[in-house]
Computed example of a mutant assay.
Amino acid sequence: MQTSTPALPSELLTGPTYTYGTYRSLVDELLAKGQTTGENHSEAMLHYTRMNQQRMKRWDKTALVPETLERLLGGLKQPQRWIVLTEAWCGDAAQSIPFLAKMAEVSASISLDLVLRDQNSALMAAFLTNGAQSIPKLIACDVATGEVCFTWGPRPAVLQEKVIAYKANPAGQTQEEFIASIHRWYTDNKNQAIAAEFEVLLKPFTL
């Protein structure tokens, strides 16, 4: 009995793709109209989106790719396409996508495409995190074959453990307090955890 071949990530795309620059422009345009990505344009979601634009602007100015990681990015055996599921209101996405864009920027072998989660339900369903539609989610694909090299997201592993622990036992900490602590963690860590994880992920694909 034959089994069907799983669809490649590129075959599951149903919405438009954006470069980091066009994604940022899209969010600016939506905010100017009192909207964000997705269907929920409540004031709360607009507030999150405005905060995220400020976070991305800050990382655009301050994020740096370590030399060891830059060497790995420059030594990839085959070009990769990084497809990242995101939404403008997602705080974790705003904290990590600028660094992902910096990595793509310093490597001639990486192309970065951002896609909206809610416009790509089949792709999101294929790359759930513990059964949840967690974003950002990066799917790295071999350009020649379209096959998946690795995935990353929705956040660094050490931070994911903190989120899981909080959900299991908030220990009196409100959701607002916990979210604030997560964003402080990102600021203090300065992308070091993300860089370390990508060094491990990329090494098998380097010369």
Rank of each mutant, 00 (worst) to 15 (best):
L64Y: 15
Q35F: 04
E199H: 01
Y18H: 12
I164F: 12
E161G: 10
E39V: 14
P204M: 02
E105Y: 13
R184Y: 07
Y20L: 05
T62M: 12
Y18R: 11
A104I: 00
S134P: 02
M1A: 15
D60F: 10
V84P: 04
N191E: 04
S181E: 09
L31A: 14
V143R: 02
S10A: 13
D118H: 12
T129C: 07
H47W: 13
N130V: 14
L202D: 02
T187V: 13
A7Y: 03
G172W: 05
Y186S: 01
K167V: 08
L202M: 00
A7V: 10
Y20Q: 07
L30E: 15
I97W: 04
G153H: 03
W152H: 08
D92A: 05
P170Y: 08
S181P: 11
E43P: 04
W89T: 11
A7D: 10
R55P: 13
W152C: 03
A193V: 02
T14S: 09
A193P: 00
Q133M: 12
G131K: 06
L69V: 10
P154W: 01
A168V: 13
G153N: 05
T5E: 12
A132Q: 10
G38N: 12
I139Y: 08
L159V: 06
P79Y: 06
R24C: 13
P98F: 00
I179T: 11
A7N: 08
S25P: 13
A7M: 11
A108T: 09
V106Y: 06
L72V: 00
L138A: 03
G172V: 07
M56N: 09
P156V: 02
E39S: 14
A132Y: 10
G146H: 04
P9H: 03
M56V: 10
M51T: 15
T22W: 10
N52M: 10
A195H: 05
T37K: 06
S111P: 01
Y48P: 12
V27F: 14
R71H: 13
E176W: 02
K57T: 14
F205T: 01
F150Y: 06
T22R: 11
L116N: 07
F127S: 03
V148K: 07
